[in-house]
Simulated assay, not measured.
Amino acid sequence: MKIESLTHHGMGRATDGTLVTRVLAGEEIELLTDGSARILTPSADRVAAPCRHFKSCGGCAMQHGSDELVSRWKMGIVETALRAHGIETDIRGIHTSPARSRRRAKFSGRRTKKGALVGFHARGSDMVVAVPDCMLLVSQIAAVIPALEELTIIAATRKSEVALTVTDTPNGPDVHVGTDKELTGELRIELANFAQRHKLARLVWADEPVVTILPPVQVFGGAEVAPPPSAFLQATRDGEGALLEAVQETVGKSKKIVDLFSGCGTFSLPLAAKAEVHAVEGFGPMLDALDAGWRHAKGLKKVTTEARDLFRRPLEVDELKKYNAAVIDPPRAGAEAQVDRLADCDIPIVAMVSCNPVTFARDAKVLLDGGYTLNWIKVVDQFRWSPHVELAASFTRS
Rank of each mutant, 00 (worst) to 15 (best):
L243D: 09
L244C: 04
A246H: 13
V247S: 13
Q248F: 04
Q248W: 10
E249M: 13
V251A: 01
K253G: 13
K253L: 14
K256L: 14
I257H: 02
I257Y: 01
V258I: 04
V258C: 02
V258Q: 04
D259C: 06
F261Y: 08
F261C: 08
S262A: 15
G263Q: 11
G263R: 12
G263L: 13
C264D: 03
G265L: 01
T266K: 04
F267L: 02
L269I: 07
P270I: 10
P270H: 10
L271H: 11
L271M: 14
A272F: 06
A273T: 11
E276Y: 13
V277T: 02
V277W: 03
A279S: 12
E281A: 08
F283W: 07
G284L: 15
P285M: 13
M286E: 12
A289D: 09
L290G: 05
L290K: 02
L290Q: 02
D291E: 13
A292C: 03
W294H: 11
R295N: 14
A297R: 02
A297P: 09
G299N: 14
G299S: 13
L300Y: 02
L300I: 00
V303I: 00
V303W: 02
T304E: 11
E306R: 12
A307N: 14
D309F: 10
L310I: 01
F311H: 06
R312Q: 12
R312L: 10
R313T: 10
P314N: 11
E316N: 08
E316W: 05
L320F: 00
L320M: 07
A326K: 00
I328D: 01
D329K: 12
P330T: 13
P330C: 15
P331I: 06
P331V: 07
P331C: 07
R332D: 09
A335P: 14
E336V: 14
A337S: 10
Q338H: 10
Q338I: 04
D340A: 14
R341M: 05
R341D: 00
L342P: 00
A343K: 00
A343T: 00
D344T: 12
D344V: 04
D346C: 06
I347T: 07
I347R: 01
I347Y: 01
I349P: 10
I349A: 07
V350L: 04
M352E: 07
V358D: 12
V358G: 12
